[in-house]
Every structure is written in C-alpha cells, then in structure tokens.
Write a protein that binds this DNA or RNA. Structure first.
Lengths: 133, 133
DNA sequence: TAACACTATGTAATAATATAACATTTAAAA
DNA sequence: TTTTAAATGTTATATTATTACATAGTGTTA
C-alpha cells in the first residue's frame, strides 16, 4: 500500500482545481481562481504547490512554469517525469512509459554516475496541430 | 560547414561572460556583470540570451532559470539537450551521449508521435558531494 | 548609391513569478 | 496533556521576464 497523504484544506482546494483542469495552470492563475475560497496570497498557493509536488500529486512543467496533476496513478512520489509539449497549442501530456523510465534510470554518464531523478520534456506538434499545418 | 553566426556586440559580451563561467549564470547576475560594458537594462540581456539560445551557443537550464555555454562543439542548433545537476552544490554538466540522444530522438509515444526536440535534466549528487555525505 | 528589409540597440515602465520574515493556528504524536 | 511538526495568514519584497516605443546599424538588391 502506498502512503496516503491527507491533503490539508488549501492543498485540497488547489489540487482539485489543477486536477479538474485540462491544461497546465500557472501559480497566479490558480491564485485568481481560488480567491473566492479564501486563499488570498501568492505564498499560500506556492506552499500548497510545493507540498503537492513533493508528494507527487502534481508536477511542474519547468519550461512553462506551470503545474499539472499527475496522470500516472502509480507514481506517488514521482522523481522520474516525462512530458510531451505541443509548441503550437501548448497541450501537455504526461508520458508513462516503463521502457523509457527504465532506460533513463539506468543511464550512466561518462563519469559512471547514475541518476535516480530526472525530468524530460519533449517538444513538437500534437496530432491536431500537425494536421492543420 | 556549419553556418557561422557573427555575434553582435551585446551578444558577444554576454556570450563571453557565460563561456568563461564555470557555473550557470542567471540573467540578472549577467546584467550586473556587464553594466561596466554599457549594458544597462534587463531587456538587453534577455534579447542577447534569446538569440544565443536560438543559435545554440548557450542553453537554458530550465529548472534553475540559468544559462550555460554549450559544451558540445558539434551542436550548433541544439534542440536535443541533456544535463546533470547536483542538488547539493548545483554543479551542472552537459551530457553529450550519442546513444542517449538517438534513443530519445527515436522515442515514440503511445500515440505514435516522435519528437525532434527535447530537454532532459538529471538530478543527483555529483561525485564530490557524494563523497562528503 | 538609394531604397528596402531585417536585425540589433537603447530606455522606461511594468508584468509575471517566487520568496523572506513573522505571528498564529491546527493536527499529530509522545 | 504537553510538545512537536505541519499548515495557515499576512505584509512586504525579491527575482525573473516582457511590452511598448524610438533609434541605429547591416546586408541585400535594384
């Protein structure tokens, strides 16, 4: 059994918003959307985001400064993340591919180092945008 | 022969600074360091950085909002980048590994998509920091 | 050379992203 | 119940990045 994380009030509000969204959300857009629920300050948002990232419920898309819910039910504390990002419509999908993650977690650099944590972002055009070209 | 990019005055000043540095530099630290050379405003720095990234002379370390010179003499327009980042001392190294880049450029997702562009950041402890633990 | 297009520069203002510092409250554990 | 850790609330501020507008240089081609 995985460890169950009981989300606090603010964490739950913010996770629910991100989880319902079909696109990555930015911190200040989250703030704007939760002000009616009593979350007034950026720091309240960032603290919840930090915690949610830490426990693997959401991921940060580094190149976009935005956050999405983890799509991979099996990844609780996800230190190995991969995403595809459409450079036209900005659609982001999480990639859950066992072969890929195994390959990367086993990757050894020139100095013989292995890495238990990585973030990979693929860029291109999604199918929709490709067909419109 | 690769296309030769003649850097403009500001681009050269900023590239030289980054290239001499042994660590990733942040935009405002760059600004501070080039003010004696007549570059006064953030935008002048960001414009040069944008161009240098575009032509592959430097890369942005997305998780750190910082910039390093391309270590890979053969990558002019580098759309396929990989780095190792030490979570303790923040040392960053560019990984130039043909097998890895081939693997990633050939990676096909569940929808059958391939991606000609990616950025990969590995996290861990560098040798020095590991031995200090 | 003159006209044009394109790239780069300079400057001021401001937007967007993120953290520091401090006081208080709540929840969980001993 | 005491005490410890985690979360909250609030104000202020730091850091990162872009918009808008005016000007200057560079290279092409007519």
């Amino acid at each position: 059994m995985e460890k169950q994380h009981n989300l606090s009030k603010n964490q739950k509000i913010i996770f629910d918003l991100i989880d319902k969204s079909h696109e990555p959300l930015k911190a200040y857009s989250i703030l704007f959307n939760v002000q009616k629920k009593g979350i007034n300050a950026p720091l309240q948002v960032y603290r919840a985001l930090d915690k949610l990232v830490e426990i693997g419920k959401i991921h940060k898309i580094e190149s976009r400064n935005a956050f999405i819910a983890c799509q991979n039910s099996s990844c609780q504390i996800s230190k190995a993340t991969a995403f595809s990002i459409c450079e036209s419509c900005e659609k982001v999908s999480e990639i859950s591919n066992t072969k890929l993650s195994k390959y990367l977690l086993n990757f050894t650099d020139e100095a013989g180092m292995k890495y238990s944590k990585y973030n990979l972002e693929f860029f291109g055009l999604c199918k929709k945008c490709k067909s419109k070209e």
